[in-house]
Design a binder for these strands. Sequence first.
RNA 1: GUCCCCAUCGUCUAGAGGCCCAGGACCGCGGCUUUUCACGUCGCUAACGAGGGUUCGACUCCCUCUGGGGACGCCA
Length: 481
Amino acid sequence: MNATNARKERVRFAPSPTGYLHIGGVRTALFNWLWARKTGGAFILRIEDTDQERSTDESVRVILDSMRWLGLTWDEGPEVGGPHGPYTQMQRLALYKEQAEALIAKGRAYRCYCTKEELDAQRTALKARDPKANFKYPGTCRHRQDQPNLPFVVRFMAPEAGAVTYVDKVFGPVTTPNSAQQDFVLLRSDGVPLYNFGAVVDDAAMGITMVVRGRDHMVNTPPQILLYEAFGHSVPDFAHLPMMLAQSGEKLSKRHGAVSVGEYRDQGYAPWGVLNYLARFGWSHGDQEVFSREELIAAFDWEHCNKSDGKFDAKKFLAVNAEHLKSPRLVPDADYAARTAPFVKARGLDVDAARVLPMVGLVRERATTFVDAADRLDFVFRDPPAIDAAAAAKFVTAASVTLLRELAGVLGGVEPWAVHPLEEATHAWLAKKGLAIKEVAQAARVALTGRTASPGLFDVIAALGRERALARLTAAAHAPT
RNA sequence: GUCCCCAUCGUCUAGAGGCCCAGGACCGCGGCUUUUCACGUCGCUAACGAGGGUUCGACUCCCUCUGGGGACGCCA
């Protein structure tokens, strides 16, 4: 697209498998993925499972499933492999240990024998004196002799003077004084790396050229850059994305409603509808709101990324999704049918995509989700249709029963069984009787669909087919009120 | 408290000094269309946080304030 984008970027999404895939995480993954696709680079998926307390295999599975459902395919990572594997941090422990030793050898890190208890005590004591104080590790073990029999963590020897400056792709230049840093822990006493160390070692090993992540990680960037420099590695570019908050302004969590990809999948959202909403959150392209996958890859850039945090809006999200469902360009009929069929089946109807396919036109402009589509299509596949009692009581009266029977007789002779002939025959009949369609429409609708709201009457009659349509009109006549 | 970041309608956003008494979308509210529900369509409500500069001219640049957010862990 543009000469400055010539570099093929290697980017990564590195979730912690501590639960479902959060909608905010998806946006981070998406922006990474878009950039990889746009630059013809690589999108790497890495599992950061070093928090053994909270990480689970189940969660890894859920995350991979969600990514696949969204269509955010990864070029390197779990299950697909790649030249820099393994792509799960707990399988890379030897590397972290080796790299930590290398830093110690360079004099840029050291073993610390202070126990967690000692440190906690110091922290608590400080807070007791000054509740607002900021506890920093005092560097007690910086020059302590090796203690072969004591457990230790490896700490970074942070510079006390100077500052780190980097140019964020979204936020521009950011400078942080080194005085804000401390001798943070690289390796725990059990040999498992902490976030900043693991991320830097892996990003360097995997040849990551740009780190794209949430703004909540912006504070991690200076220490990470210090690490790159200590190693003598070139520093990647960084792009931080503003955060997606709840309407209340709090961090978006389950108590604000659905936040996991799985929930939206189960609610019948289209994967690309989800991604489209997320793409436009913190990024814009003039007034364009709806994008196909290809359009988004072509249009995406960092210049139009916003810096300010935003609030998740479920209604707008639904609207964007509905926009996708309405468009055959964005969701082709076959895809629409395939995604709707499982939801129809979930209603206890033995229906496959092939049977849904010819019915897509009935709900295309009405349904906002595939679940909604399945609901609106229920009457097509259920025989007899589920009749809403209140609707029947109101519209299927003794008088309308007679009319419906008569209408069935009239329609019985219509050839071919298609919307226009059916409509013409009905109107001719109505004209002869001096009736307005209004006077039979709702009764017919309830008889045919069981509900007062449905697709167009003649579309329904045509879709049902001669036999079933006539049977339903007649059945209603036999079972009034 | 320390360090970092942010600031246009309720929400997502356009806006890169005059094109803006601020545009689009969602939501909300009306009208039209109509056999129902929708779709569609027309319209309405609604914003540049405050104060100083800079400039012939600021939503756009600078400063201060105010208001938000993030981080300060052997979590990620």
